[in-house]
Computed example of a mutant assay.
Amino acid sequence: FLQMKFDKEGNTTYLEKKKTELYQELGLQARDLRFQHVMSIATRNNRIIMRMGFLKAVITPEFLLILDYRNLNLEHWLLNELSSQLAGEGQLVTYSLPFEFRAIEAILQYWISKLQGRLNTLQPQILETLEALVDPKLLSVDRSKLHIILQNGKSLSELETDVKVFKETILEILDEEEVIEELCLSKWTDPQVFEESSSGIDHAEEMELLLESYYRQAEDLLNEARELRVLIDDSESIVFINLDSHRNVMMRLNLQLTMGTFSVSLFGLIGVAFGMNLESSLEEDPRIFWLVTGIMFLGSGLIWRRLLSFLGRHLDPPLPPHVPAVWKKSQPAAGRVEIKTSLKGETFGLSRSTLTNQ
């Protein structure tokens, strides 16, 4: 498979070797170069094996080897950023330290920036969609917005998982002092670096500080993702509350119309009685029509009004109890405290004046 090799000066060499030849040349085992999309940082035979998802690298005191980088969209970072960072021209804080420090920091920086980029892409989309969903003026929820927030929520969950795995990987190394010592490759191969470590520059401590800095960045990134998750959950609750409110309004309106229909139907029986083909002396009087019609409308209106008042008493939430008595009782007590305080002040003033006169 294809490899890209970087030396200490950032020079790039393209290689293509078989897997068996490569792990024999590096002194590794076959399982060390197994292509698994996992996240781990391990050492073997003075070699650092880093797996960051799809990114796989082998670090030695002399060079950095990126394995099988094709079809991973890594060419831009490898050619434009990584080579300059290893040569000391990038934004790294480990220029004065051995080569493996720069290689580890460059890979960790790339991965944390990639996670940050994913969050920066999701955050405005989520906030814009949530703002449109929680609008109380909307009587219905846009299904397309719900589909978008569902996809963004799924992407946010995947991001949280990746950040947690990255954070746990670094934490496992920080808990093992021996592993931190093994990550300092040049300390055991370069006599000058060993003398610097013995004279006061603790490379293991520098490695620990480097890992802790990226651990804190991952923790901050995870907190931002959790805040977005909380916003999604809160907005979901607000959407349900708005829908329940509109549903209650429609149900109340339906109940009011049903009561009105019942009232009209109840007094409409009078019109039904007069509509039968029966003769009486009432239909001869021209004023009876208007009288019966008025009674029907007036009775229906009164019954409907009565039913609406009954509905309001039983459906409206009760008012909180009013407790003015507590405040009234507390006023005299406060007055007594003020009076006692003033009396004490007057007595203290009189005693001071008496002492002064004496």
Rank of each mutant, 00 (worst) to 15 (best):
F1W: 08
L2H: 02
L2P: 06
Q3K: 00
M4A: 00
K5C: 11
F6V: 14
D7F: 01
G10R: 05
G10P: 04
G10S: 08
T12I: 15
T13V: 14
E16R: 00
K17P: 04
K17A: 11
L22C: 05
Y23N: 11
Y23C: 13
Q24R: 04
Q24C: 08
G27F: 07
A30H: 02
F35I: 13
H37V: 13
V38D: 15
M39R: 04
S40H: 00
T43A: 14
I49W: 03
M50F: 03
G53E: 14
G53N: 07
L55Q: 02
L64M: 10
R70A: 03
N71H: 10
L72V: 01
L72Q: 00
L72F: 01
L72R: 00
L72N: 00
L74E: 01
L74W: 01
H76M: 07
W77Y: 07
S84N: 14
A87H: 01
V93W: 04
Y95L: 14
F99M: 10
F99W: 07
F99Q: 11
A103H: 00
Y110A: 14
S113P: 03
K114P: 03
G117E: 14
Q123A: 09
E128H: 04
E128F: 04
V134K: 06
D135S: 12
D135Q: 09
L138Y: 05
V141D: 12
L146V: 06
H147Q: 14
I148C: 05
Q151R: 07
Q151D: 09
Q151H: 05
Q151L: 13
S155Q: 11
T161N: 13
V165F: 02
F166R: 07
K167H: 10
D175N: 08
E176W: 04
C184K: 02
K187M: 12
T189R: 03
Q192N: 07
V193K: 02
S198D: 14
H203C: 09
L209P: 01
Y214P: 10
Y215Q: 13
R216H: 04
A218H: 01
D220P: 03
E224N: 02
E227G: 03
L228V: 05
L243K: 02
D244Q: 13
V249Q: 11
L253V: 10
N254D: 10
L257C: 06
M259Q: 07
T261V: 10
F262G: 08
V264H: 01
F274E: 09
F274K: 08
L278W: 04
L278V: 15
E279I: 14
S281E: 15
S281Y: 11
L282G: 04
E283P: 00
P286D: 14
R287D: 12
G294D: 13
F297M: 12
F297E: 08
W304H: 13
L311H: 00
L311N: 02
R313W: 13
R313H: 08
H314Q: 12
P317T: 03
V326M: 15
K329T: 08
K329R: 08
A334V: 12
G335S: 13
R336Y: 12
G345D: 15
G349T: 11
L350Y: 04
S353M: 12
